[in-house]
């Protein structure tokens, strides 16, 4: 009875076997011959790399202040999860007072402008006022509305104002992980106060060499495995940014956290003991055990995994055992060595 799969494998590898060096097991004398079954694998782990827990550009809610920051006190920890409307920071200083005054002023101006607009609307319809005068009225009204609106949105986030009017407490505009702004970001005329990252936007990113990016499948931390969701569409020099799926709650990863992680790569490969690979005729090879003979088979080493190599080969190796001892002597034999 013919073992069909084995027959097919042998048939497929026949052209290679014909070129390959073949040795009879019986010719190997007292050499200690141990074999190891080739193990097919679908992925492997690469050397650790630096990763960053963050959100993609534009995915975080950014809270800007319409006035300069003089004193800022966050009321929650950087990176902490906050609910929408939760008070998160206090701003203090004369600019706060000026801001409140600016709101009040803007509100009065708007009220005045609206009143004028409403009153002149019928006059304009009656063509009692000229076109240009009406345009001025409309323009002033719209400017006052926009000016107030700009301040008004920020005002909506004010949870409390101190009696003296120089301190306000702000609420979170949306739920998410709060990320403090940096000193630089707080230094402009309309400074960034904080970012709010939605749970679905929090991911682990790694800068991966462009050449390896396509096979990167997942990132492993001690607590969880994160599948790679997508790659950045532009490279930063030799690297491209890869983004994981959203970080699940159980991963114990914090926004902004920098960590060392193990990347996982996808490839159809085999696992063989390190000591089974040798270099012969300018190629990496293994000796396949086929009954009473050993056949050399060229392979490519992809990576190492503990005491094993991850290898690929032009031919299927899953059914084979490879020689895992005395390989140095076998190579010597192939080189014509031996004897006194």
């Amino acid at each position: 009875m013919i073992n069909l799969p084995r027959f097919l494998i042998i048939l497929c590898s026949l052209p290679l076997a014909l070129q390959a060096a073949t040795l009879k097991v019986a010719d190997l004398g007292e050499l200690d011959l141990r074999y190891s079954q080739v193990q097919a694998i679908a992925n492997y782990t690469g050397p650790s790399m630096a990763a960053h827990v963050e959100s993609e550009e534009g995915q975080a809610y950014q809270l800007f202040s319409p006035f300069m920051v003089q004193q800022l006190a966050y009321q929650v920890e950087n990176g902490a999860w906050v609910e929408q409307g939760q008070t998160v920071l206090r701003m203090t200083g004369s600019e706060v007072h000026h801001f409140i005054e600016r709101i009040e002023a803007a509100q009065s101006i708007l009220s005045l402008a609206k009143h004028r607009y409403d009153n002149n609307q019928s006059l304009y319809r009656q063509q009692a006022i000229s076109e240009s005068t009406w345009q001025d009225i409309v323009s002033q009204y719209q400017q006052a509305r926009l000016a107030f609106g700009h301040l008004g949105h920020f005002q909506e986030l004010i949870a409390a104002v101190s009696e003296s009017g120089d301190s306000i407490v702000l609420k979170a505009p949306s739920a998410g992980f709060i990320r403090y702004s940096t000193e630089n970001e707080r230094s402009g005329s309309e400074p960034l106060l904080a970012r709010f990252i939605d749970r679905q936007a929090l991911r682990v990113s790694v800068n991966i060499p462009v050449v390896n990016a396509s096979t990167l499948s997942h990132l492993s931390t001690p607590e969880c495995n994160l599948q790679i969701e997508h790659l950045g569409q532009s490279a930063n020099g030799l690297f491209v940014k890869a983004w994981s799926e959203a970080v699940p709650q159980g991963c114990k990863l914090l926004p902004g956290q920098q960590l060392s992680i193990k990347p996982g790569y996808t490839t159809q490969a085999y696992l063989v003991p390190r000591q089974s690979v040798f270099r012969f005729e300018q190629r990496q090879q293994v000796m396949l055990h086929d009954g009473q003979q050993l056949i050399s088979q060229p392979v490519q080493i992809v990576a190492s995994q503990g005491k094993h190599y991850v290898i690929t080969s032009d031919t299927s190796l899953s059914q084979y055992e490879v020689l895992a001892s005395s390989v140095g002597a076998v190579k010597g034999l192939l080189l014509g060595m031996g004897g006194e």
């Binding site: 690469g46 050397p47 630096a50 030799l238 390190r274």
Partner: peptide
């Protein structure tokens, strides 16, 4: 330290090199 020591050409190519300015690069890239 077998986990970090390159043990094949491919691994050496993929090994990260800390550049003089502190950035890293893959050996195979430079």
């Amino acid at each position: 330290n077998t986990a970090q020591q390159p043990a094949s050409t491919n691994e050496l190519e993929n090994a990260m090199l800390t550049l003089p300015d502190g950035r890293v690069a893959r050996v195979g890239d430079v």
